[in-house]
Design a protein around this nucleic acid. Structure first.
Length: 504
RNA sequence: GGCGAUGUAGUGUAGUGGCCUAGCACGCGACCCUCUCACGGUCGAGACUCGGGUUCGAUUCCCGGCACCGCUACCA
């Protein structure tokens, strides 16, 4: 049964896209691409009460940034349009009626208040075979009564009629065979008349079938309801083309118990979303990986390895590598704690792989923000010299600032340690020495200065660090002659003189 | 509570019925490099959830406990 691979990512537009959802989408994408299949974006907006404006656009923009592309779906179109469930009301209605007619579903009039009352009355109330005959529904009411209620505009829901005592098997690509007895399933609401929309379970099955989805790769939270989905395929007579299931483990918080949430990000200081998001109601801001300075390829690489690995010791993979190597079977069954430090390391690695020109270009806005104007060539040199020290481009300004802005203050501790009594005199000698160098290259300058230190038998560490202090303002930074090379002769001398004047 | 899933160092994971003195990476520590800081290199600390079984032998297979995660909505 060779079937064209067609997978989908089907988020609800209820807010920003959680990073766990991004991973699910990524795995779907990798799976589709490696088998030459199609990847579809379907928006599951069947809960009209939870709809959040802008969320759909956010989702689309997030994937665009990450380099995850869809072949069909919302914003793209395709042969199975529309891909937004709220626009598919009429198609679901047909299938709801089909279930009603075949007796696999029934109409229920119980109001939420009545259900709450029932739950309070019965400790472990569940709307199922054992209780449905106690409720107000088309199984307990006469046809006339039901028709009358519906005609009167009484709101109702359609529930699946799940027969008890059957072991239902779900063959999961990651977990193997999972068996759940139908008695523990409840008569799930499939459709609500209030907004004329189906619930997830119905819409999902109908759409996956109609859109010819071959594999359902989704989060583990769906595993308990997978048997119901299997049942639904059977009720519709679609068992032969039922997609294969793969339930992915969830992303857990870095510490403590529970799954990763926005709160953890806020608390521990890392993003949980791909892009910044501002809640239009509360005004609350959620930070995103893009704005935090991550490269999309680093996020993709990091996420891919969180719950999957190719079976060897390699860790750095491009999207193309991942498409070649990915396999559902190698997805881990256990939930992965989110390790933000490792994420930073990935970004560091990707920063190192970037061209110096590109890094320099990315630094420009920071320079502007600090009112710095510098020749591009100089910025490139600085980028080349300094990029291995940070994980993010935005962290580059601080350690690089001294290249562009001469120090006006000098680190006390370094002064104490390196600025000796004879240092000012040495520095004046150094100025004279540098003045005489015409070829201010790294090699030449180093040769001349080292010679001077040696012949005078100066303490190398003290001289060099005092020198560094005059240029940087503190006791750290790259090798001295890398710095003098970038600063140039004039500026180097100016800084030494100023330091001598200031520190004394 | 019920049902289901999962359980290798702090974290992500590899691996196998004996080759395991359990590998790799992040993080952590030390050392080396060195004019400082960082990078890099070397080394180190650190794990098979517990209890039963099966077996000549179990981290690996089975059962149970425990832990943890998920579901248990007219949310997805």
């Amino acid at each position: 049964m060779e079937r064209k691979v067609r997978v989908r990512f089907a988020p609800s537009p209820t807010g920003p896209l959680h990073i766990g959802g991004v991973r699910t989408a990524l795995y779907n994408y990798l799976f589709a691409k490696q088998s030459g299949g199609e990847f579809i974006l379907r928006i599951e907006d069947t809960d009209s009460t939870r709809f959040v404006p802008g969320a759909e656009e956010y989702i689309i923009e997030s994937f665009k940034w990450l380099g995850i592309t869809f072949d069909e779906g919302v914003g793209i179109g395709g042969p199975f349009a529309p891909y937004r469930q709220s626009e598919r009301r009429s198609v679901y209605k047909t299938y709801v009626d089909q279930l009603l007619e075949s007796g696999h579903a029934y109409i229920a009039f119980d109001t939420p208040a009545e259900l709450d009352a029932k739950r309070a009355e019965m400790p472990n109330f569940q709307y199922d075979a054992s209780t449905r005959m106690m409720m107000r529904n088309s199984l307990t009411l006469t046809k006339e009564e039901v028709d009358q209620l519906v005609a009167n505009g009484q709101q109702y829901v359609v529930r699946a009629k799940v027969e008890p005592n059957e072991d239902i098997e779900v063959n999961d690509l990651i977990r193997g065979k999972v068996v759940i007895n139908s008695s523990v399933l409840d008569d799930k609401v499939l459709y609500k008349s209030a907004d004329e929309l189906p619930t997830y379970h119905l819409a999902n099955i109908v759409d996956d079938h109609l859109m010819e989805i071959s594999h359902v790769i989704r989060g583990e939270e769906w595993l308990p309801s997978a048997p119901l989905h299997v049942l639904l395929y059977r009720y519709f007579g679609w068992s032969d083309t039922m997609p294969q299931f793969a339930h992915l483990s969830l992303l857990l918080k870095p510490d403590g118990n529970g799954k990763l949430s926005k709160r953890d990000g806020d608390r521990l200081g890392f993003p949980v979303f791909p892009l910044n998001w501002k809640d239009s109601k509360t005004g609350e801001l959620s930070s995103g990986y893009r704005e935090a300075g991550y490269f999309p390829e680093a996020v993709v690489n990091f996420l891919a390895l969180l719950g999957w690995n190719p079976g060897n010791d390699e860790e750095l993979f491009s999207m193309d590598d991942l498409i070649k190597l990915f396999s559902i079977e190698r997805c881990s069954k256990n939930g992965a704690r989110f390790d933000y430090e490792k994420g930073k390391w990935f970004n560091h690695k990707y920063l190192l792989m970037k061209d110096n020109d590109e890094v320099a270009r990315m630094m420009l806005p920071q320079l502007q923000a600090h009112n710095v104007e510098a020749p591009f060539e100089m910025v490139v040199k600085v980028a080349a010299l300094m990029k291995d020290r940070v994980s993010f481009v935005k962290d580059l300004w601080e350690p690089c600032a001294f290249f562009f802005v001469a120090p006006v203050e000098y680190d006390e501790k370094t002064i104490k340690k390196r600025w000796k009594e004879d240092t000012p005199a040495q520095m004046r000698e150094l100025v004279a020495l540098l003045q005489g160098i015409d070829d201010f290259s790294i090699q030449k300058t180093e040769e001349v200065v080292m010679n001077w230190v040696t012949t005078n038998q100066y303490h190398l560490g003290n001289v060099m660090n005092a020198f560094r202090l005059t240029l940087v303002g503190e006791g750290k930074g790259p090798h001295i002659f890398e710095i003098t090379d970038i600063l140039g002769k004039e500026e180097t001398i100016r800084r030494i003189e100023r330091a001598v004047a200031t520190i004394g």
